[in-house]
């Protein structure tokens, strides 16, 4: 019993197989969202809106520290 008492007590973790599908699909969509705020229509463009996305989030992009113009 004594060695159990001294071992660090980790809380019960969430199983990896449960996290993985969420991490892949939700992670991809969320990274895409960051990309649209931070870089879309800058160095490259996924959709061509004539610069509307870039100009609309422009101030946020600069203030969040993303490279802009």
């Amino acid at each position: 019993m004594s060695d159990i008492a001294f071992a660090p007590a980790y809380p019960i973790s969430i199983p990896t197989r449960e996290i993985l599908p969420w991490a892949v699909f939700a992670g991809l969509i969320l990274i895409l969202a960051v990309y649209f705020v931070g870089a879309e229509e800058g160095a490259l463009a996924l959709v061509d809106t004539g610069g509307v996305i870039h100009e609309f989030v422009h101030d946020g992009r600069h203030l969040l520290g993303f490279p802009c113009h």
Binding site: E55, F56, L63
Partner: peptide
């Protein structure tokens, strides 16, 4: 609105990614 959209969208996305990393 543009600034608010940019920061809120970034915040929500960062929070979501944060939750995924936290889960692991």
């Amino acid at each position: 609105i543009g600034l608010a959209t940019g920061i809120l969208a970034f915040g929500a996305a960062a929070g979501g990614i944060f939750a995924l990393v936290f889960a692991y």
